[in-house]
Structure formats: structure tokens, C-alpha cells
Amino acid sequence: MNSAIAPFHEPASAVAQKRISRYDWVSLGADLDQHGSTAIEKLLTPEECRAIAALYPHEEHFRSHVHMARHGFGKGEYRYFKYPLPDIIAGLRTALYPRLAPIANRWNERLNDDTRYPAQHADFLKACHEAGQLRPTPLLLQYVPGDFNCLHQDLYGDLAFPLQVAILLSEPGRDFTGGEFVLTEQRPRMQSRAEVVPLRQGDAVIFAVHNRPVAGTRGDYRVNMRHGVSRLRSGIRHTVGIIFHDAK
């Protein structure tokens, strides 16, 4: 166990399972169906948030370092964790997936997509690895004044789980200003709709990676989702992203 970020008296996986089980997943699922996103309050403690953010300068935890401006992604930077993941991040990834897989399968059924996701994350990762998607995708993002993240979708190969999670590690108003999490939704023959998701330190947002179904007068139809972060005005902002598929 990495005691720097999981100082628990029991395994981080057990801690994550207990935390996940205390939330109302029927209500969270209904929010996802209606809006394409939902927030989970206080998923991490302030101490855990600070400990995870403190990993950022230590390259031994990461497989790559991306400067957004070099690739036209925006302005800011992030690092992809390498395997083995930090205990608490691995635990949350494993614990969240079984709650989200039924929602993902329901969405695909509504969209007439034959893809179905297994009940456990280990089985989904096995499918990713068999498809040549071997690199871990959880990441730690850092923004300083003037930084922003362009609207995008986190697709890394043929296999992509349709939901992902971002956890805010910094406290708005104290650690930074600006830097709001933004979602946009493009419906057929309509203008894009934008939504800002307010988060506090330790809060998580679950959101659609790519597409989601919306009920229309003639049945369900597919809408295209993107997400990003608005310009940071002051301070420093850290976020951890939990993506359930691995990358090529």
C-alpha cells in the first residue's frame, strides 16, 4: 500500500467500496439519464485530495507528461499514472465501475448498440488489453492562471467505456478562481447546450464520455457530449480523472 495517499487501516479497495455504497445510485443514475452528468459530494477527504495533488511533481508515479498547448488541447498540463495505480485511485476505479456498467448497458440498448460491458472492471480491462489497449488512463491535471482545457472527448482506442469520473482536488475560492468544469451537448439540428457543474474539494462528477441517449417524440436519439475546463483566473487547480478503458 502506498501510505502517502492511502493511510488507511484497511485496504484502499475496501475503503472505496464502503464510500461508493453510501450514495443513492438510483438517484445518480436518473441524473445521468436526464442530464448526462451527476455530482457525488465528498468522495475524497481534504487530506486525500492534498496527498494526491502532491504526487504531481514526482515523475516515478506517471507514464507520460502532456503539455496541452503543444497539441492544441488548450493550456495547462497533465500526467498519466502508470501501473500499478495509487491505491485509492485503483480502488475507486474498481468500485465505481460496477455501479456504472448497468447504466452504460442501458444506454447502449436505447441506442441500438450491441456492445455490452461486463459486470466487473477486471473483465473489461482484460478485453481492453486483448484489443491492444494496455496503457492506463487515470490522470492528474494541473492548471495555473490562464490555463484552460478545450472541449474534448477521452477516446483512446476501439473500446471506450461511455462514462468517466473527475474529482476536484482543490477548493474553489481558496485555492483558485475560475476553472469551472463545463459540459456541452450537441443534439441533431439544434445549437449546442452548455452546462457548468459546480464542484467543491473532494467532489466528483460522473459524465458521458462521447454519446448518450435522449428521449424524443419518436424514441431515443443520440447526442454528442464534450467536456472541458474554463480559464483559470488565479491560483492552482488539481483534478484527478478516472477513465475506465485503457489506451493503445
Rank of each mutant, 00 (worst) to 15 (best):
G76N: 09
R189K: 12
G29Q: 07
P213F: 02
A14I: 12
I20T: 13
T94F: 01
L32I: 07
E60Q: 14
L151N: 04
L85H: 10
A54R: 12
G235I: 00
T217H: 12
G216E: 10
F73M: 13
Q191D: 04
R237A: 04
S27K: 13
M1F: 05
N112K: 15
A131T: 00
Y117Q: 03
D114G: 04
S64E: 14
R79L: 07
G173H: 04
I40Y: 06
E48P: 01
D220S: 11
D203N: 08
P145F: 01
N2Q: 15
G74W: 03
I89L: 15
R187S: 10
D33G: 03
I88A: 04
A215Q: 15
A204N: 10
R135K: 14
L28M: 07
P188W: 02
H58E: 13
P136G: 04
A39L: 13
A215C: 13
E130C: 00
L169M: 09
V144L: 06
T94Y: 05
A194L: 03
V205A: 13
V144G: 13
Y156S: 02
R237E: 01
L169G: 06
G157T: 07
F176Y: 15
H245L: 07
F73R: 07
R193S: 15
T217Q: 14
Q17H: 09
G235C: 04
S3T: 12
R237Q: 06
T38M: 09
V229L: 08
M68K: 08
K42H: 14
E171V: 03
G179H: 08
V240E: 11
C49S: 15
V15M: 07
E130W: 00
I89R: 01
E10R: 11
V15K: 11
G157L: 08
P46N: 12
G72V: 03
E185V: 12
I243L: 14
C49T: 04
A53L: 10
T184A: 10
A101E: 06
K42G: 07
A166F: 12
L125R: 02
I52F: 05
G235R: 01
Y156Q: 01
A90Y: 04
D123M: 02
L199T: 03
L232T: 05
C150T: 13
E47C: 13
Y97P: 09
H152W: 09
A122L: 04
G72E: 05
L134R: 07
V182K: 01
K75L: 09
H129N: 05
M190E: 13
S37Q: 14
A204K: 09
N105M: 08
R189S: 12
R212M: 07
P84C: 02
P84D: 11
D147C: 11
